[in-house]
């Protein structure tokens, strides 16, 4: 199966791991991620302003591109996924916004939210299936106590994101189980790390990040996983605690035995 892939700015730069492992694991799981040609940065945050049009055009172009190829649009970064999904939702439900976007982009395209937008985790859950992942695991992470860190962007706003129960999500916990580890459920897993405000107010980010890490540690987590480079940055940089935070794709790669690139090649050669 082929999907359109929107990597986003950070995955091409500071979070190359997130990108590399995602692609490598997808191949193992029978999915080819076709990077969208000439994609442009999503902008990192979705503006909820109804009259904010121009900053959403890059997302619309990516959505329209996937629509033309009749493919699911997948991203791995929580922020990209949030912006793409919210933009798509606006194209479906806000007629005035869609009209103005389409007028601006005409005659190249007319888009009304046809594309299905999926986060990589949803791809694992809904297309591949966690059971299938469990079968493919060669290095189960048995005994590891892992806390899922959702942050805010993956889940909220719940009405639009529709990924999971906003207050009691389980997609990442199920993922952690699928790779053989033990999930640690802690209440702060869906609270904000401090986001972009870290640039404006380090203290605020330090407070929010520490609250997350402290609660996860109190719950017994030895390791946290996230899908968002900014979350990882804040937790590691500002959390004030030596609790490792890694991208979920890295653990997936480890479990599937493709953490090392040469392993991956070997796997591919064998397969």
């Amino acid at each position: 199966m082929k999907v359109s892939y929107f990597p986003g700015c950070t995955l091409k730069n500071k979070a190359k791991d997130l990108d590399t492992y995602a692609r490598r694991c997808a191949e193992v799981l029978g999915i080819t991620m076709e990077e969208i040609e000439n994609w442009q940065c999503c902008g990192g945050v979705f503006s909820t302003a109804k009259d904010e049009i121009a900053s959403k055009l890059s997302s619309v172009r990516a959505l329209a591109y996937a629509a033309e190829k009749e493919q699911i649009l997948v991203s791995v970064c929580s922020a990209c996924h949030n912006v793409l999904k919210q933009t798509n939702h606006a194209m479906q439900n806000d007629a005035d916004f869609a009209l103005r976007v389409n007028n601006y982009c005409a005659p190249d395209m007319a888009y009304h939210g046809e594309t299905q937008v999926m986060h990589y985790l949803e791809l694992l859950r809904d297309v591949v299936g966690f059971d299938k992942i469990r079968e493919k695991v060669v290095n189960p992470l048995t005994g590891k106590k892992i806390g899922a860190y959702y942050g805010c962007l993956l889940l909220r706003p719940g009405k639009t994101m529709q990924m999971d129960d906003v207050e009691n999500p389980r997609i990442m916990e199920d993922f952690i189980r699928a790779i053989g580890a033990e999930p640690v459920v802690y209440a702060m897993r869906n609270e904000c790390c401090g986001g972009y405000v870290t640039l404006e107010d380090k203290n605020l980010a330090a407070k929010t990040s520490a609250a997350v890490l402290d609660n996860a540690a109190a719950g017994g987590a030895e390791l946290l996983v996230t899908a968002c480079p900014l979350c990882r940055y804040n937790l590691v940089k500002n959390g004030g605690r030596d609790l490792p935070v890694v991208y979920f794709t890295e653990l997936l790669a480890e479990a599937l035995g493709v953490l090392d690139a040469t392993q991956g090649v070997k796997e591919e050669n064998n397969g």
Binding site: C9, K14, C41, V45, A79, L199, P229, R232, Y233, K237
Partner: peptide, 12 residues
Amino acid sequence: DMPQQLLVSALR
């Protein structure tokens, strides 16, 4: 270590 995402978000 600062991710690009932080800068674009803050600018937005």
